[in-house]
Computed example of a mutant assay.
Amino acid sequence: MTIPFIAVEGPIGVGKTTLSRSIAESQNFQLLKEIVEENPFLSKFYDDIEAWSFQTEMFFLCNRYKQLSDIKKEILSSNTPVVADYHVFKNLIFAKRTLEQNEYEKYEEIYKILTRDMPAPNIIVYLYASQETLMKRIALRGREFEKNMDPAYLTQLANDYEMFINIFEEANPHIPVLRFNGDHLDFVNKKEDMEYVLTSIVEVIQGVQER
């Protein structure tokens, strides 16, 4: 039987952590949460992306490497299902958008070394939404370091995610990818929307477990 390892992904503000927490609570999965606010470079990054992108991305990469290492040793080894509110591939999405070419090439080499032999999710939940919806949700959660976020940057990021997830899906046909439109489904505030999303995910989980 395959042990489910779900990654919930999508652009900033789309509801990844909320959905991941609901999956963990309803299915008794171990929750792996992305470290965000602990990043000391993040507020500087949104003030000056060009100056602080490499430091920001390296901090995230090293922390995600440590989290995945712990998951490999302590949780998946004991056959415990996991849901994470990120997939490590997001590092390349952000780095490709923010780093100069020479920096990106160095970063990509480090990424490949650190992620080699790391556990990989076998179910992807991809959330997406319009810039308007994303900006509203970002404002509602009130993170101080996100107040200076450029809406154009968010739009570019959402487009990058869409392109990347399409490529990922083509390259990994054996990994189910569930897509949910955040403009049409407000699973944060509407119970019936959350129930619909969770029901859809449970059906895929059952299929993966039967492999």
Rank of each mutant, 00 (worst) to 15 (best):
N172R: 11
N39K: 01
P176D: 01
K190V: 13
K73S: 10
N181K: 05
F145I: 00
F180K: 12
P119N: 08
N148D: 06
W52Y: 15
Y153H: 05
G13E: 02
F145M: 03
L134C: 07
D193E: 05
S53D: 12
I205K: 14
E50D: 14
F41L: 00
D70M: 07
M194I: 02
F145W: 03
N28W: 00
F59K: 04
V8K: 09
T199N: 14
G13Q: 06
F5G: 02
V8S: 10
E38Q: 13
E103G: 00
Q206N: 15
Q30M: 04
Q27Y: 15
E162L: 09
M135L: 15
I167M: 09
I93Q: 09
E9C: 12
L198T: 11
A171E: 15
K16C: 06
T133I: 12
I6R: 11
N166M: 01
T80M: 10
S20D: 05
L198K: 14
F41G: 01
F5H: 08
A51S: 15
V177F: 07
M163Q: 14
L31Q: 05
S69W: 01
Y126P: 12
T133D: 01
S43N: 11
A158P: 10
L76V: 06
Y107A: 08
N39E: 01
M118V: 09
V202H: 13
F45I: 03
M1H: 08
V125L: 06
N166K: 15
N181Q: 05
I110A: 11
F168C: 02
E109P: 00
E25H: 10
P176G: 02
K44S: 13
Q209T: 12
A24T: 08
F59M: 03
L114I: 07
E50S: 14
E109M: 05
V177T: 10
M118D: 06
R137V: 01
A84G: 11
M118N: 07
D117G: 01
T115G: 06
F94M: 05
A24G: 09
K147T: 10
M163G: 04
Q156V: 00
F54V: 11
I49P: 07
D160S: 14
D70H: 09
Q206K: 15
N28H: 13
I93T: 10
A95Q: 08
I165A: 05
F89N: 13
F5W: 04
L99H: 09
L154A: 02
K136R: 15
A152Q: 12
L154S: 04
P119V: 04
E146K: 00
L127P: 12
E103Y: 04
F168Q: 03
N181V: 02
L127K: 11
M118I: 10
L42A: 04
L154Y: 03
K90G: 04
V208G: 11
N148T: 12
A129M: 04
N166V: 00
A51D: 10
D160Q: 10
N63F: 02
N122P: 11
I123R: 12
S69C: 01
D117R: 13
L61M: 15
M149S: 08
D193L: 02
P176C: 00
Q67F: 01
T155I: 00
Q131K: 15
N148M: 03
V204I: 14
E34F: 05
Y161S: 08
V82Q: 06
E57H: 13
S43A: 13
T155W: 00
M163Y: 08
R21N: 12
A51F: 02
Q67G: 03
I124A: 03
